[in-house]
Design a protein around this nucleic acid. Structure first.
Lengths: 211, 211
DNA sequence: CAGCGTTTCAAACGCGTGTTTTAATCGATC
DNA sequence: GATCGATTAAAACACGCGTTTGAAACGCTG
């Protein structure tokens, strides 16, 4: 068993358990036992539990951020080419779609999305700082692009509406698979593609609402 | 020092620390030391740490639920009197406004709102079950009323949009006081009243969006 | 095959946790 | 003022935690 296998298995197990139970409620013993590695392996390969969390988040979030930046830049470039302002919906799609579509990217991806969805309102600084530090540049670009799309909105209002958008998005990210109402009377949840389109429609309409 | 004082001081301290640090990251020693009571007092008066959490949530959520029900019922009654369908915005206001306005209700109220805002996506079942059990009847009434207001929406779509609404709302509840961007360049956050109106405008527009 | 850096392993360390225990103290009632 | 249940207090309990240790096993290189 090579080092690569061990590190990856620890990352996979950590991703799954951090997402399911939260950072503080997940023990290294649970992670190493799920990963079928020795307890000391986490500290040997990553240094600490906290550093493992950082590695878990970085592994997926760095590529995701790159993708989101690429798509936002593409929207901005297309708008610049025609001389028009970028459309809010296109920007929202560039930011939201890669994130949510990522859930179908493979086993563990859905866990990861739930993890970072929850990180946004995480009380613990360990988790929140790790997440916010990684996502901030991306968010800044997103916000500034939206200012171009909706120049008539005061920036404090736009910021509030972007926060609402993030809230709706993160809520979908961490709870879409466990509906609040579990009755037979409750409607069946939408499939992922429809859900993304509905979310886009919802937040676009909210962002563009008259003041 | 009477029993009442002790129990109340424990509830206040628990509310504050659970909201600030999360349930699992808050120790009974931190709570009892903040409340200036003996460590054993929590188990004596409440039975366990988990039962304390339940008491903390119930103390505020039961009256809040009553208020929300009263306001929703009032909107429904007013609509029934005129024979028209209730308006989505009035229902949203009846559900959202008491919750967010509650933050100004006194010291500890803001902590509490953050606590239940986060409970919605809490990974730990201890917290989530306690919260969901209390809020479910209220939520059901809210959802069924919205079906009257927006009868043209398929109920699965409406449910998704209501989830988006809850996400935006809970995100405001637990993060409005700590903005993501902390630059001098970042816009000043809105005051509470404006924030509530903006949230209402946002989610109304999203809920009523064309399909 | 010897030597050596890397990785795995079992065991233990120190610490903080929620809870329980046992005794002391309080406050109302007879 | 004595009595008795309710409350407070200090101490200890058993347990699980993240981390560290030191030796064993591995895999490569000469």
């Amino acid at each position: 068993m090579s080092q690569f296998d061990t590190k990856t298995r620890i990352l996979d197990a950590g991703e799954h358990l951090f997402a399911r139970d939260g950072f503080h409620n997940t023990s290294l013993r649970a992670i190493t036992s799920l990963a079928k590695v020795n307890l000391a392996a986490v500290n040997y390969h990553f240094g600490s539990k906290e550093a493992l969390l950082q590695a878990v988040i970085e592994r997926r979030l760095l590529p995701l951020n790159q993708l989101r930046k690429k798509q936002i830049d593409a929207v901005l470039a297309a708008a610049a080419a025609t001389g028009a302002a970028p459309s809010a919906k296109a920007l929202l799609r560039a930011f939201i779609e890669p994130t949510l579509a990522f859930r179908s990217a493979g086993p563990g991806a859905q866990d990861f999305i739930a993890l970072i969805g929850r990180s946004m309102s995480e009380p613990d600084e360990t988790v929140r700082n790790c997440f916010i530090g990684l996502v901030l540049p991306n968010f800044r670009l997103f916000f500034e692009s939206l200012q171009l799309a909706l120049p008539q909105l005061p920036s404090a209002v736009l910021m509030a509406r972007v926060q609402f958008t993030l809230g709706a998005m993160s809520h979908v990210m961490c709870t879409s698979h466990k509906p609040i109402i579990n009755d037979p009377s409750a409607p069946k949840p939408l499939d992922d593609t429809t859900l993304i389109e509905q979310l886009l429609q919802f937040v676009t309409s909210g962002l563009e609402a008259p003041q």
